[in-house]
Computed example of a mutant assay.
Amino acid sequence: MTGKIPAYKISKLANVSPSTISRILNNKKNVNPETAKEVKKIIYQLGLEKLRDETKIIILNLNDISNVFYQEIIEGVRSAVIANNCKLLIDQTEITDENVEEYVDFLKKHKIYGIIILKQLSREILKEIAKNIRIVQCNEFNPKVNLPYVTIDDYSAAKTATEKLISLNKQKIGLINGPRSFRYARERERGFRDALKENGINANEDWILSLPVIKYDIALPIVDQIFSTEYYPEAFFCISDTFGAAVVTIAKKHKLKMPEDLSIIGFDDTIFSQIISPPITTVSQPKFKIGYSAVELLEKYDLKKEHIILGTKLIMRKTT
């Protein structure tokens, strides 16, 4: 079958104007989502979907697909892609100043509909991509560029978690952070420090760690070294459940009772926080919804560049 989708015929079946059909086929804004869904259903039922010159391909670009944190985000993206009759490609290309032009050429050559970025890129790289294709920043974002993003309030989440530890009469509190090159790491540390300051607690810089990657095996010896000294924290806020699990393991090695001797709060509510014993109190972020919302932002892409900040929840378990 060749030719164009007959907008007039579809408009009759969907009981909408041909101009509305045109806006839907060209992914324009100001279209009721339910109307768009009904029109796409009719196109599919008529066997006309192959005539759409976009079989829309969405790329999800991320650093490390093995990172357990990304799994639910990927599932959210995948579900939204299916709901919108698109195709998904997962890409681990490291986009740099040196290869961004080549990368954009690839996107254009393969008629990529849009790209979701699960990492923070420079202002220059983002602007170069955005000149040529729809782009949404997911979880990480660069505040210096007015592009759409979906994320959480890392600062408030970290501050709330730290305040919870303080409410348990913990004064000696440590932080295990990831690389500060990431916005989330800087924001969570800022929330941690502000919670201590506002409660009259001096931060012990020896207990504020910034590890190069979020890996359980890397955290183990560093945490072990802290608990091998005479003076160690009575609580830890960990910016990842992976780090929280490492603290639990080392605490048990040193025969510390949790939460009596040591309280721990992690972040992300991944499977690590649930299966380790004792299970870890953690900040739960809506990972599936983050991924799903990123695709929705691509679908209603416009010059206003919508920003979505989703809420988090502190899940109480056995380490507090």
Results as ranks from 00 to 15, higher is better:
302 D>Q: 05
171 Q>R: 15
185 A>G: 05
60 L>F: 08
185 A>I: 07
171 Q>W: 11
230 E>Q: 15
175 L>H: 00
53 D>E: 14
27 N>E: 15
91 D>G: 03
270 T>N: 05
216 Y>G: 06
261 D>N: 07
245 A>Y: 01
92 Q>H: 07
118 L>Y: 04
31 V>R: 00
263 S>I: 04
291 G>M: 10
140 E>I: 02
305 K>C: 01
209 L>C: 11
311 G>R: 07
207 W>Y: 15
270 T>G: 05
134 R>P: 10
293 S>A: 14
143 P>S: 13
163 E>C: 03
2 T>H: 15
223 V>S: 07
12 K>S: 06
308 I>F: 08
61 N>P: 10
20 T>D: 02
77 V>L: 08
86 C>E: 13
232 Y>R: 06
216 Y>N: 06
154 D>P: 02
196 L>T: 01
66 S>L: 12
84 N>F: 10
248 V>T: 09
219 A>P: 11
19 S>Y: 08
15 N>T: 05
191 G>N: 09
192 F>C: 02
137 Q>C: 09
156 S>F: 15
41 K>H: 12
128 E>T: 13
300 K>L: 05
221 P>G: 07
275 I>P: 14
201 I>L: 11
317 R>M: 13
191 G>D: 12
90 I>L: 05
240 S>Q: 04
164 K>A: 15
21 I>A: 01
88 L>H: 04
122 S>H: 10
213 V>K: 08
249 T>P: 09
138 C>L: 05
241 D>E: 10
59 I>H: 01
222 I>S: 06
80 A>K: 04
88 L>F: 06
306 E>L: 03
35 T>E: 14
251 A>W: 00
231 Y>Q: 13
60 L>A: 11
199 N>S: 08
135 I>W: 07
295 V>L: 09
137 Q>G: 03
320 T>S: 07
121 L>A: 07
26 N>Y: 03
303 L>C: 08
120 Q>S: 14
288 F>H: 11
242 T>F: 06
76 G>D: 08
309 I>P: 11
40 K>V: 01
214 I>H: 01
48 L>Q: 02
174 G>S: 10
97 D>I: 11
92 Q>V: 13
239 I>G: 00
235 A>D: 00
142 N>Q: 09
92 Q>C: 13
210 S>W: 07
257 K>A: 13
177 N>F: 12
120 Q>D: 11
266 G>C: 13
261 D>L: 02
267 F>R: 01
98 E>W: 10
229 T>D: 10
275 I>N: 14
220 L>R: 03
8 Y>C: 04
41 K>F: 13
285 Q>G: 05
263 S>D: 02
141 F>L: 11
272 F>N: 06
104 V>T: 09
199 N>R: 14
219 A>T: 03
52 R>Y: 14
40 K>F: 07
81 V>F: 07
173 I>Y: 05
147 L>Y: 00
264 I>M: 10
21 I>V: 05
30 N>V: 06
195 A>D: 01
301 Y>T: 01
270 T>I: 05
109 K>M: 14
121 L>W: 04
301 Y>S: 02
1 M>S: 15
128 E>V: 05
159 K>I: 12
253 K>M: 15
90 I>K: 00
189 E>T: 09
287 K>L: 06
